[in-house]
């Protein structure tokens, strides 16, 4: 099962990313656990210097912006393969 983490202190962009990620997971029909990380001291540990951040299987995929659904899709597929 995939472990997906959304880094963000609760700003609108983090919620948007979470929502888009959920949509992508549903479309792909993969099993994934989505966890929200809100503690700012944890962000630096993943190497994210701006929120929102997307972490898949403990690896930071992108940060500081909202990736498009296609982009998230490709992150997830490459993490699965």
């Amino acid at each position: 099962m995939l472990s997906i983490k959304i880094l963000g202190s609760g700003c609108p962009n983090c919620k948007k990313l979470e929502q888009i990620t959920h949509n992508v997971i549903e479309q792909l029909g993969v099993q994934a656990e989505v966890i929200k990380v809100t503690d700012p001291t944890k962000f630096a540990e993943y190497g994210a210097m701006a929120t929102p951040g997307l972490v898949i299987n403990e690896k930071l995929c992108c940060s500081g912006r909202i990736p498009s659904p296609t982009e998230i899709n490709s992150y997830i597929t490459s993490a699965l393969s």
């Binding site: 700012p40 630096a44 994210a48 701006a50 951040g53």
Partner: peptide, 12 residues
Amino acid sequence: CSCTVIPLFAGI
């Protein structure tokens, strides 16, 4: 916005 301030501050 503060979404950037706090993580960047912690990072630096």
